[in-house]
């Protein structure tokens, strides 16, 4: 079978097949990013994809752009240096829930605070997959992980509320099931001038699913379909129908001075005076 046009154009097909497990939806999210890039007509040479460590962070190795696979939790910090050094580059960060909000949480909130023009896509599967299923900061309370054998007593993060509170200027959540919407949010996030973040809900049947009896990858996708509702619909639902529902959609969008542009003003001012 001939690879799709998207694969031929945006993937390093010599590096495929990918390492992800059967039923994992990281591939869907990765495709959504390239689809958004394709729709935006972005220049591959001008696009940088930076990742941390974990299952999701292996994605850049398959993607035909300038790519950097960094250290655990540090993707946003590396990306900050890249963007500062060359603001003309479009810099996208691919990270996981643990990478972004546990070990990398400090970089996440401070990059959001600065409103530096990075686009962060969190492949959020609520678990540490690469190390075999330990609970992450987005694992629901009472769910099981190899390190939560009696049920998780932690409260999970809402990564978007965290980012918004820290100063992010575009936040949205999509799911691997609602791909059309996911692609449009990623597209808007990339176009947005400032710190943007898309929480991309992904499923991990191997490590989250097995331990939590969530079924196969397909069944977990059906669960996404049945339990996630568009925020616009959710807002109109009566209170009793909201229970147990999760929301996707765009949550926050604002214009605010962007960090590298503000720094450039300092350079221009100083150099004008010299």
């Amino acid at each position: 079978m001939e690879p799709s046009k998207l694969i031929q154009e945006y993937f390093r097909d010599a590096n495929l097949p990918h390492i992800w497990c059967p039923g994992c939806s990281h591939g869907i999210v990765t495709r959504a990013i390239t689809k958004a890039i394709d729709e935006l007509g972005m220049d591959k040479d001008n696009t940088v994809i930076v990742s941390g460590i974990g299952c999701s962070s292996r994605a850049p190795g398959y993607m035909a752009f300038n790519t950097v696979h960094t250290t655990h939790g540090r993707a946003i910090a590396f990306a900050t240096g890249i963007k500062m050094s060359k603001p003309e580059l479009d810099v996208i960060v691919i990270t996981g829930d643990g990478d972004a909000s546990a070990i990398g949480g400090n970089h996440l909130i401070h990059a959001a605070r600065r409103n530096i023009d990075l686009t962060v896509i969190v492949f959020n599967n609520n678990i540490y997959g690469m190390t075999g299923g330990q609970y992450s900061p987005t694992t629901p309370t009472d769910a099981f992980g190899t390190t939560a054998p009696y049920g998780n007593i932690d409260q999970p993060f809402d990564i978007l509320k965290l980012a918004e509170g820290a100063g992010a200027t575009y936040t949205a959540r999509g799911t691997a099931y609602h791909t059309k919407q996911l692609i449009s949010y990623i597209s808007k996030a990339i176009k947005h001038k400032g710190f943007s973040i898309v929480d991309a809900i992904s499923v991990c049947p191997t490590y989250y699913g097995r331990r939590n009896k969530s079924g196969s990858g397909v069944q977990m996708m059906v669960w996404l379909k049945d339990n996630y509702v568009d925020v616009k619909v959710y807002d109109k639902l009566p209170e009793e129908k909201r229970a147990g529902k999760f929301v996707y959609g765009e949550f926050y969008e604002q214009e605010r001075p962007e960090y590298t542009a503000e720094y450039q003003k300092i350079i221009d001012r100083l150099r004008g005076e010299v």
């Binding site: 590396f78 050094s85 580059l89």
Partner: peptide
């Protein structure tokens, strides 16, 4: 990390 990133970018 940011310093390495800037160096990677040239």
């Amino acid at each position: 990390a940011a310093a390495i990133g800037a160096s990677i970018a040239g």
